[in-house]
Design a protein around this nucleic acid. Sequence first.
DNA 1: ACTATATAGTCAATGAGCTTGACTACAGGG
DNA 2: CCCTGTAGTCAAGCTCATTGACTATATAGT
Lengths: 145, 145
Amino acid sequence: MAADDLPALLLSAARGLVDSIDAGVRARGFTDVRPAHGFAFTLISGGGATVVELARHLDVTKQAASQMVEELISKGYVDRRPHPADARARLIVLTERGWACTRAADEAAAEILASWSTLIGDRRLTALRADLAKLAVPGRLRPTW
Amino acid sequence: MAADDLPALLLSAARGLVDSIDAGVRARGFTDVRPAHGFAFTLISGGGATVVELARHLDVTKQAASQMVEELISKGYVDRRPHPADARARLIVLTERGWACTRAADEAAAEILASWSTLIGDRRLTALRADLAKLAVPGRLRPTW
DNA sequence: ACTATATAGTCAATGAGCTTGACTACAGGG
DNA sequence: CCCTGTAGTCAAGCTCATTGACTATATAGT
């Protein structure tokens, strides 16, 4: 196999994707959120989550997750509700603003994917997704390296 | 086009790749380096670089790049030499330890790519690289989101 | 039912890495 | 030769994460 720059290309594509989605979200008026918040929204949008679940999802400590929740509450994106089955826990859910931001991110992502489709074609994009599905590591999401 | 989880898969694969390379480098005895240092080595290994060039490559301020150089010097990975053509600048070059670490990273990366080759096949891996080359954004490298 | 241990969450202090601002030293064109 | 621009460093501060300690609730074992 030839000397490979695949790692650099993969990193560059990932960075470009995140930057583009972030730019799209900001362009839609949500200027006080970071990409990391989007990773949180992804989990919370699925029926809510606890702080500990969020911490695991983001691969940070529960203290860090708690701080992020506090920040998102103060910015109006999420809300705390009592957990229906555990008095210790609290269920974090999206507010209407949180949902709007999530939709904005989805729209931005769809735009990027559409541009990618014109770049390499729909067939290649589907194949790319299939290949990446085999290479992706389950569980690990948040970069921050 | 179907609702796509391609962004998540791409991020996950990128994160898995970086984590694996980092683990491989540590397993080879270099426990005091971070992935970001690898991005620096990539530039410096090509005949040396100045602090400002490094800053541009890593997409950080020159102050941050200067601090990283200071750290890498104290750990014995790089060295400062007077710049042959500019008395203001200094040429940052790899020490023998820096080269050894770079080789370790290359070995680790080759290992991961080999495992990927067994996962999706050599042909698909080549196609993947070609597609990513079209999607990658030139210049942008360091994530840190 | 009662203790013992584990888990959910928060508060406080600290740290790593990056930024802005200000400065010195040298470069290079009018 | 000045005058503007660039290379680099010093210092201070910010942001986001960490570790440590604690309270409240859950759950298993006897």
